[in-house]
Design a binder for these strands. Structure first.
Length: 465
DNA sequence: GCGATCAGCT
DNA sequence: CACAGCTGATCGC
């Protein structure tokens, strides 16, 4: 134990020195004594930065996995008797409690032996594609501690994989984001308001001599594309997470404007991802719901959702059926914070008032849904559930939604629907061919050199034409 | 005891 | 690989 502690300390020091090396290579001090990221650390072939793509971790610690307890009770699907005593002390936040009733007993079929690495902390280094060269800015880089040379931290949108590391003890610098994202950072993460700097969409700001504009990203509420114009005339666009749309082609900062570097959300940068438009998916979801309710009027409709995003799936059902939306208090609070007109009238605080319920997407499993249905005072005889996720796709289904077949068990039916808030391959192509940027830096799927090369070859093909 | 963070999992 | 998290475990305070 003590040995491990020492190793961790040693590793931390090692990593910090590595980090300094990186910064020494890629940053300089300007007249104010503030560090900026140089723009000349970027090569044209896109192959010379493999090291920078991988966030640094301690390999020696990874090898030293230490077994903790194997939970045989879970392995057997039996309740751990010791949990009875614990339950009084342990703060439980499981779904059953969220719904307001007892956990019927965890019976995960297979629970792997748990291992622990927390004792061997990994220290990551901010990868180059999160830094904006020639500026003291980073985008979605909160998990690296204070980033050397960074005096302003941008948050593109409020999803956990982008704000990870941002907590109420944050003190490494100002956080720039849209108004809506700023509210979420404050109310959900309790970050000190003194660090939160909300920016109006579509308004140009001068931040440390750089012209910055946030543009709607057509992703989740509050998500932004970030446009930077440097004093030397260079323009960079960071898409954060986005779904490219025709509307973006009318943004004054994008139409007929030169973009020198495009930091691109390449989540679905593969021709196999050809999913339908959001509108088509919404139409499909509403159609399925109507048909189902015609056949089985006593049906409860459930939509799975993450913290924010994909709200229109249940808004569409709500509107089409003329029913309110039930969501738990924390989700209602978040939805209210969007400041959307008329949202309050469509939310219900009582689950008995409406057949349309929103649940965490992780709870869309038959066992949990059966329990949820059983808890509804026999109001309903069936359940229809939707799981909206971009990964719910199949090459054969492609854009033909009628090929989607639900999975059913007993009186519960679950539809996976390809409602995506990221660009499809085609949308990416159109966006890049519209923007014709000088250079493209992918920000997703970059952990693997083969993928990186594949993506760069797509970019080249698109821009050849 | 609480919050932060991480590996593993989906 | 990643979506956008969740869970359990551990550690620092």
């Amino acid at each position: 134990m003590e040995k491990c502690k020492e190793e961790r300390k040693l590793m931390k020091e090692t990593v910090i020195s590595d980090s300094s090396t990186f910064d020494d290579l890629h940053s300089f001090s300007d007249d104010d004594g503030e560090n900026c990221f140089q723009s000349d650390n970027l090569d044209d072939d896109g192959t010379t930065h493999h090291l920078e793509y991988s966030e640094q971790i301690c390999s020696s610690c990874v090898k030293k996995r230490r077994l903790t307890q194997t939970n045989l009770f879970q392995l057997w699907g039996v309740k751990n008797p010791a949990d009875h005593g614990k339950s009084k002390n342990v703060k439980q936040t499981n779904l059953f409690q969220m719904w307001g009733f007892e956990n019927p007993g965890k019976s995960k079929s297979v629970q792997k032996t748990t291992t622990s690495l927390a004792s061997c902390k990994t220290q990551r280094v901010c990868p180059f594609y999160k830094r904006i060269p020639g500026t003291p800015f980073t985008v979605d880089a909160f998990r690296y501690g204070p980033v050397k040379g960074c005096s302003a931290y941008f948050l593109s949108h409020f999803h956990a994989d982008h704000y990870i590391g941002l907590t109420k003890v944050w003190s490494h610098g100002p956080i720039y984001c849209t108004n809506l994202t700023a509210r979420l950072v404050r109310i959900c993460l309790n970050v000190s308001p003194s660090f939160i700097c909300p920016l109006e969409l579509g308004t140009e700001y001068d931040l440390k001599g750089i012209k910055v504009t946030m543009l709607d990203a057509n992703h989740c509420p509050g998500a932004a594309l970030i446009h930077f114009r440097l004093p030397n005339g260079q323009c960079y666009l960071h898409t954060g997470d986005f779904r490219a749309s025709k509307l973006m082609q009318s943004y004054p900062l994008l139409a007929n404007q030169r973009i020198n570097i495009l930091y691109l959300d390449t989540t679905y940068c593969n021709p196999k991802y050809r999913f339908p438009s959001k509108e088509e998916v919404l139409k499909f979801v509403v159609g399925v719901t109507r048909t189902y309710l015609n056949n089985y009027p006593k049906t409860i409709v459930v939509v799975g959702a993450y913290s924010i995003g994909k709200e229109h799936v249940y808004f569409a059902i709500s509107k089409a059926l003329g029913v309110k939306i039930y969501a738990n208090a924390s989700r209602r609070r978040i939805l209210q914070s969007f400041g959307w007109a008329g949202i309050s009238e469509n939310l219900s605080t009582n689950r008995k008032d409406t057949p349309l319920h929103i649940l965490p997407i992780s709870s869309l499993k038959f066992e949990m849904l059966e329990h949820y249905l059983a808890s509804q005072d026999r109001q309903y005889t069936r359940m229809l559930a939707f799981r909206p996720t971009g990964w719910t796709y199949s090459e054969t289904i492609g854009e033909n939604l009628s090929l989607i077949k639900p999975t059913s068990k007993g009186n519960i039916t679950i539809y996976g629907v390809p409602y995506s808030e990221h660009s499809s391959f085609t949308e990416l192509q159109e966006f890049v061919q519209f923007l014709r940027p000088e250079k493209i830096i992918p920000t997703v799927n970059v952990g693997n050199a083969v993928y990186r090369e594949k993506m760069q070859s797509y970019f080249q093909q698109w821009l050849k034409a």
